[in-house]
Amino acid sequence: MQASANNLNQTIITDHLVAQCKKGEVRAFRELYNAYSEAMYNICLRMTGNTADAEDTLQEAFMQIFRNIERLENAGSVTAWIKRIVVNHCLSHLRKKKVYFEEVDNIEVAEEKAGMDEDSFAWTVSAIKDAIQDLPHGYRTVLNLYIFEEYSHKEIAAMLDISESTVKTQYMRAKDKVRQIIKQKNAIR
């Protein structure tokens, strides 16, 4: 019951903020930015891989959000709308950097390997974050979109203009690469 009341309050606040932004009120833009910038920065950082690119991408995305706020018809979907714009700016940034997505067709995607001794690895949050940052951009992008942003393989394929089988393969390879990176770093210790 409490969560439902909080969601209703958040919706009312968001509806009010969006209405004020549509009127061009600077204070409302600042509040909207403050409400969403931290979460959206984290998306940018995960996808671009460094703070400078994340900051630039975030600012560009919010400029577009503010320029186009009047197009938002349903204030209740503002979070999804903002997230979509931020993700699209991240993808545009990666395309400009010529991030390569290896196109594969007719390749069987290996299922999870049962019986891997994952417990022997130091699977700390920090180790996993570091390993993800060490991934090639293509792998990291697919992994982030699937795991953290919760897009389906089909949605990712459409966003990146690659086949769904390529997305699945990149995702599986990314997970394997994360395991390898962690295993290598643990072997050095």
Results as ranks from 00 to 15, higher is better:
Leu8Met: 08
Val178Tyr: 01
Ile69His: 04
Val78Lys: 00
Ile43Gly: 07
Thr169Ser: 14
Arg71Gln: 00
Leu145Thr: 13
Ser77Asn: 13
Leu72Val: 15
Val86Cys: 03
Met47Asp: 00
Ala5Phe: 10
Leu58Pro: 00
Phe121Ala: 10
Thr141Gly: 08
Tyr41His: 12
Val18Arg: 01
Glu111Ile: 01
Phe148Lys: 07
Arg95Ala: 13
Gln59Val: 06
His16Glu: 02
Asp130Ser: 07
Met172Leu: 11
Ala187Phe: 09
Trp81Arg: 02
Ala158Pro: 07
Ser92Thr: 11
Arg173Met: 14
Leu17Ala: 02
Val109Thr: 13
Phe29Val: 00
Cys90Pro: 09
Ala61Leu: 06
Gln170Glu: 15
Val104Ala: 09
Asp130Met: 03
His89Lys: 12
Asn9Met: 06
Met116Ser: 10
Asn144Leu: 00
Ser126Arg: 14
Phe148Ile: 09
Arg189Glu: 08
Met172Gln: 15
Glu102Val: 14
Ala28Ser: 14
Glu118Gln: 05
Ile43Ser: 03
Ile188Arg: 07
Val86Phe: 05
Lys83Phe: 03
Asp176Gln: 09
Ile132His: 03
Glu164Pro: 12
Ile107Asp: 02
Ile12His: 14
Val87Ala: 04
Asp130Gly: 14
Thr48Ile: 09
Trp123Tyr: 11
Thr169Tyr: 15
His137Gln: 15
Arg71Ser: 07
Pro136Met: 12
Gly138Ala: 03
Asp105Gly: 09
Gln2Val: 12
Met172Ser: 11
Ile82Gln: 03
Asn68Gln: 12
Glu164Lys: 14
Thr141Met: 14
Thr166Glu: 04
Ile69Cys: 04
Ile65Ala: 05
Val78Asn: 04
Ala19Arg: 13
Leu8Trp: 10
Glu108Tyr: 08
Ser165Cys: 12
Ala127Val: 10
Thr166Arg: 02
Val167Ile: 12
Tyr33Asp: 00
Val78Phe: 12
His153Glu: 11
Ala61Met: 10
Met116Cys: 09
Arg189Val: 02
Asp53Val: 01
Arg46Ser: 11
Ile132Val: 15
Lys22Phe: 08
Tyr100Trp: 09
Glu25Leu: 13
Ala54Tyr: 01
Gly115Ala: 07
Leu58Ser: 08
Asn9Ala: 15
Leu8Phe: 09
Asn50Ser: 11
Thr11Ala: 04
Gln133Val: 12
Gly76Cys: 01
Ala110Phe: 07
Ile69Ser: 06
Leu72Ala: 04
Gln10Gly: 04
Val26His: 05
Tyr100Arg: 13
Asp53Cys: 05
Ala35Thr: 04
Ser126Gln: 06
Ile43Tyr: 07
Leu45Thr: 05
Trp123Gln: 15
His93Cys: 11
Glu25Val: 14
Ile12Lys: 03
Tyr41Ala: 06
Lys96Ser: 10
Val87Glu: 06
Tyr146Gln: 02
Val99Thr: 15
Val142Cys: 07
Asp119Lys: 14
Gln59Ile: 08
Tyr33Ala: 00
Glu149Pro: 01
